[in-house]
Amino acid sequence: MPEELVEEILGSINLHRTFDRGAPHVVINANKVLSSQVVEGLEIEPEELPDGVRARLRVTGGTKIKQPVHLCFGMLPERGIQKILLDVEIEEEAEVSFMAHCTFPNAVDIQHLMEAEIRVGRNARYSYFERHWHSDEGMVRVVPVARVKLAEGARFSTEFELLKGRVGIIDIDYHTDCQARSSAEMKARIFGRQDDRIKIKESASLEGEASRAVLITHIAVRDEAVAEINNEIIARAAYSRGHVDCKEIIQGNGVARAVPVVEVHHPKAHVTHEAAIGSVDSKQLQTLMARGLSEDEAVDLIIEGLLS
């Protein structure tokens, strides 16, 4: 029974043929852990909750995990709430990368709530890539909240991608505190259609000398979709550097609002921002339509390129 569910979840993200069961991974459906595999230096302690899963993830000091750790959060039922509470500790000098897939193939009314506490130790490296696969109809509400603390020299990068299927409602709130010489890169790429609602708040606080943060948000909205981006960098230390980049593409009746905030408390800190809101170029559209693509297909392809 769990075997079939694993197959169904992996199938919905096109990984059923290539997924390596021997590689480190966790596959979750609703509030059940269906399959997991650890490697030396990686500890995963999941705990079932009535409406989700709480998990502690730890990479022990100095461990460098070569293969990406695959996390798959699925919700096969049509309705329900899935809470994922993560407590992540990457100890000193350790290295790990996570590849996360969130899939809701049958969603009619689903809420996916993620709360993560992430601590990246001295000189440790942590990267996290999260791809969402939603259905073309139905309603998903995704609320990821992350509080990240980077010790001296730590490197953290996270990327959130939602390009396939309807967004529904998404409300991202990530905050990173950066100690000396640490670096944070937070990226989000989202394509909203119909009456999707996208809200993003990424923020970084550059507390230590020579710490760095880059916040990149590339959003496209078409039809009646609405996006609001509030990205913020606060620099408090000498030689800290930050950059906020918001790029939004609007088509049809889509609405986009970008508010980059930079706040600098030290004369030797340097923070920049750029925000651009544009639309799909009519010549690109006409070129693809002159090859036989419908207007919708052409817009999707152009936006996919712009968000890539």
Partner: peptide, 28 residues
Amino acid sequence: LNVDERARLGITLGWQEPARFEGLKVSQ
């Protein structure tokens, strides 16, 4: 007929100045 409807009949145009597509691969 619209552009795409004409294209589906088999009519097409190569522009004097072709468009650029940021981020789109040649193969795509």
